[in-house]
Design a protein around this nucleic acid. Structure first.
Lengths: 333, 333
DNA sequence: CTGAAAGCGCTTACAG
DNA sequence: CTGAAAGCGCTTACAG
């Protein structure tokens, strides 16, 4: 591999001149620049990223920490990863994707060895074990998902309480007085998936204010348990509407309803919480709160990039709950 | 951040001694080692990855190049990414995941800057534009998916021709004489997704040898086109069996069949090509060739790691077509 | 407008 | 068993 030294020799200049030609940090005479450019082309020179990182203390890499839980539905994750990767690249950063099950250890390992300029967390739990490590590392951090202690980070999340409320409002306006609510699985609550109870508590409270009765179930996440549970729920059903806040359940819902001959919205009103892409993937004909993974991912990257560029704001805390928006697919009475 | 110099000073030894204590590449007296270890703990020292990479020419990072095509079904991709990431970590490597749409440029950029020790390609096309770059780069490469010119790389793929044959055999043995075949979308052929025609050609040839008539369709990949096409195919159907080699179509199939009252296998035999995880995700009750993304991903990583460790084999070519295996879910006559 | 040199934080022959 | 020093390939004050 050609080094900057090779280029300098070939162009008959000093290494520093080549470096400045590359960075544009000082003006170079036309002639010199052309000789350097020619040499670079002829030698096929690309600066070595490791050497550059060592000299500048900048790797131009963002660490993306993803956790996969057995009890969660994986396709949703990709919706965040892709926009994050794209947004990072647009800002000139590459993505080191880390999927180790011991997330705290992974963050520690990657941040302390200086492999990345910033850390991005996905699938954040309320008491996330990665947060203590994040607080001590020298790089700035951002995340999608609201933890208990977001101090010093950029945090983006859907406004889940408001999501719960507007779905209840939507059904209340249409006269429903008894509602089924299917939530994430119980484990998610125990693990501290804040989105689960933030959504549910707000929905229950709003329903109570209307005098609406809500029957709440922890949804399953794997087959055949999903279908079995749905059938049991539907066997016992007296309610006229259903709110589903569980990706795996809503993905399975159309076939279960078909098989039972339950028509939506004539026999049952259904609303959910999922992204447009997710809905398209599973052909879901249900009105839903859009979860905007795309938007959340991009916002988080942009905020993180800002933070990496200006250490002054490195200690500020920014929590942004994106307002929910209902996509009406006509699945309610 | 503490450096190796800080540790050396604190332990009262030379930098080199600390380095050797870290790597274990020469014996250190008990006392000295203990002093060094204490210093490391007290200072919270972790070697700087960039400096190490510069000194050793090893980054311990694998570049994973993923392409997302509009006309392909994304959830399948994650099934490869996860096992690859896990297998890499087990071997001591991290994953730089690159999703740029210009794959050739991305490989060029990452490999020439020395950010990775090896390159892994996913979603490989027959005439993959990334291959020419791969042939010129200095790092070893591996891929999942068979290109026209695999020279010098480790290539792993499902044996698609054999997959097509055993599915035809499976239906032939059960007496089917007329079969519907739904393939990937036409674009995939044009783009050079070899798995598409390798599977189809072999299936058609085997069917011909039995005197079985096959009606072949390019499947759609997005709703509502999928359902519409399926309905048209089923309206015109005279066949007794269906082979589906298209993720998006098979994911949508259960609800279409439900809605038309077509029972499997009583009214129609159905077989597909998908992984166990994929089948679980979409609750697919169909007999299928297992695509083993898990196995393919891990094999490719292991081969790549071998290659990175022993430059002697760096020029060898290894093409491994994993024999297909049918998972019988009772969806045929 | 350009060069010579120090320094980033490691590893590894070379010496003893 | 341990140290002093060169070198990996860049960037950036410092000088002119």
């Amino acid at each position: 591999m050609a080094t900057i030294e090779d280029v300098a020799r070939r162009a008959g200049v000093a290494r520093s001149t080549v470096s400045y030609a590359l960075s544009g940090k000082r003006s170079i005479s036309r002639e010199t620049r052309e000789r350097i450019e020619a040499a670079i082309t002829e030698l096929g020179f690309t600066p070595n990223a490791g050497a550059r990182a060592l000299a500048t203390s900048q790797t131009m890499v963002i660490g993306l920490f993803v956790q996969f839980f057995e009890d969660e539905f994986s396709p949703a994750m990709l919706q965040y990863v892709l926009p994050i990767s794209d947004a990072a690249r647009e800002a000139g950063y590459d993505i080191l994707m880390v999927t180790e099950s011991d997330g705290a250890h992974a963050v520690q390992r990657i941040s302390s060895s200086g492999m990345v300029d910033g850390v991005m967390l996905l699938n954040v739990a309320y008491e996330d074990t990665r947060l203590p490590v994040m607080h001590k590392m020298r790089q700035p951090g951002a995340m999608v998902g609201l933890p208990r202690d977001p101090d010093g980070f950029d945090v983006f999340d859907l406004d889940f309480p408001e999501s719960g409320r507007i779905l209840v409002d939507h059904l209340a306006e249409r006269g429903h007085r008894e509602i089924i609510l299917i939530t994430p699985r119980g484990d998610v609550y125990e693990r501290g998936g804040a989105y689960a109870w933030r959504f549910r508590d707000a929905a229950l409270e709003r329903a109570a204010s209307y005098g609406i009765r809500v029957k709440s179930y922890f949804g399953e996440t794997t087959q055949p348990a999903i279908n079995q549970q749905l059938n049991e729920i539907l066997d016992a059903r007296q309610e006229t509407a259903m709110i589903v806040h569980n990706d795996a359940v809503i993905a399975a819902l159309p076939s279960v309803l078909y098989s039972r001959g339950i028509r939506v919205p004539d026999d049952l009103s259904v609303v959910g919480v999922f992204s447009e892409d997710f809905g398209r993937l599973f052909s879901l004909p249900y009105t839903a709160v859009e979860t905007s993974p795309n938007k959340l991912g991009r916002l988080a990257v942009q905020a993180l990039v800002q933070r990496m560029l200006s250490p002054e704001i490195a200690t500020a805390t920014r929590v942004e709950l994106v307002p929910p928006h209902i996509t009406d697919r006509g699945s309610t009475r």
